[in-house]
Design a protein around this nucleic acid. Structure first.
Lengths: 224, 224
DNA sequence: GTGCAGTGTCAAGAATTCGTCAAGATCCGG
DNA sequence: CCGGATCTTGACGAATTCTTGACACTGCAC
């Protein structure tokens, strides 16, 4: 699900946006001030941020600059101010779009789609290869030494999540919630069992995995 | 030089835009109708297209759809129409931004910069680098001399807090509460132990730390 | 020099987490 | 209803990580 963070100090607008966005299938988190916004942005990976410039604690542009020191997440700025200086300042601080209040919800949604479309990983290779095995995400197929490897549905889902995030650390919670559902966040047993299966089937030396790597205490990582 | 195609049927606006954009260092081509716009777009690689919706031959949205069948170049749409339906239609047809006439030139330029910034180098991630080591917050990875450094969960969390606040002083209480939780505000022992670990793993000379600096009596600071 | 507060260092035991295995439970096609 | 495949669950040593306390070092005040 697409994770969106909405930052605004007006509880009514926040609520309205949350409901609208959730109705359109987004996974919404909210924050009412700059500090909690920055904190929330560190907690879990976001696809997009909607940021109101008029915040009680920090000025919105500062939040933006701060965020931009370590994140490239697309940011859509909301503002009550129509002046072009404000727009230029926000856009140059790293905003990707700027929309003034009052705005139409359908326009907001359309701009949001446009931003997400652009930031969507363009060149996700449908086929990922390592020295040991090959994963074809489109054909839903895994090969090793030219031979097909049979994976159970769960094994495949887990491998898919890892392979779609090459080099990235995928946390246990991410894996569990993407494969088994958000309710299973505590069942780390599953991960151990299925990771062992995958390694037995894919790694040349299951005891010393080179491509399906454990990051103790946090999660797993696929390295091609 | 950055190549921009401007499509508009109004010769005055076309001329004004050409002059302005050239003055800002862009390489400008122009087209006055949909067909020549599409033709121009095939001739020469473009970094960005500015497209007026009101064209004499083709409706602007059709031009956009046509263009999108084979190109992902960022498109900024100009339009005299303020209706949100028009905006939604254009954005969903593949536009990246939509700006209504009359518009301020500085706003146009700022939006243009924002679009170009995002389309530039999509593969680049936010990494924080020092002369000694590199921290990739997205991949959750630390590198030194090209080699991965294994960090324990706690070590990583602590480094993360520091790195997300570059140059800033992070107090002991902040660190303790972000890494161990608000209840641990007195356990400054932890800080000493883990700071020592981090320095041993990351600093060239752990005895004379240059990037993970102690501010006696207050906290620590990360300097890139 | 002495005492003190804050900091760095070290190592050992406690606690947690990991890989592994195997025994049921469950699902599904025939 | 059967049989095979898949999933769940619990248990166990092994490995890793965390916690804890003791001690040394530094700079400063007295």
């Amino acid at each position: 699900m697409t994770a969106v963070l909405v930052v605004d100090d007006d509880p009514h607008l926040l609520r309205a946006l949350r409901i609208t966005l959730q109705a359109h299938g987004y996974d919404v988190t909210t924050a009412a001030d700059g500090h909690s916004a920055l904190l929330a942005a560190t907690q879990h990976p976001l696809a997009l941020v909607i940021l109101d410039l008029g915040l009680p604690d920090l000025d919105g542009t500062s939040v933006l600059r701060e965020l931009r020191t370590w994140s490239r997440v697309p940011v859509l700025v909301l503002s009550a101010r129509h002046g072009s200086e404000d727009k230029v300042e926000a856009l140059d601080a790293g905003a990707d779009d700027y929309i003034t209040k009052p705005f139409g919800l359908d326009e907001l949604l359309a701009r949001l789609r446009a931003l997400l479309r652009r930031s969507a990983d363009p060149g996700q290779e449908p086929v990922v290869t390592t020295e040991a095995f090959t994963v074809d995400l489109e054909k839903h197929r895994v090969t090793r030494d030219g031979q097909d490897i049979r994976l159970t549905p769960t094994e495949w889902k887990m491998l898919e999540v890892l392979v779609r995030n090459p080099e990235k650390l995928v946390t246990q919670q991410q894996l569990l919630s993407e494969v088994w559902g958000p309710a299973y966040a505590k069942e780390t047993n599953y991960l151990r069992v299925y990771m062992a299966q995958l390694r037995r089937k894919l790694e040349p030396e299951a005891a010393a995995p080179r491509h399906l790597v454990t990051e103790a205490g946090i999660g797993y990582r696929f390295v091609p």
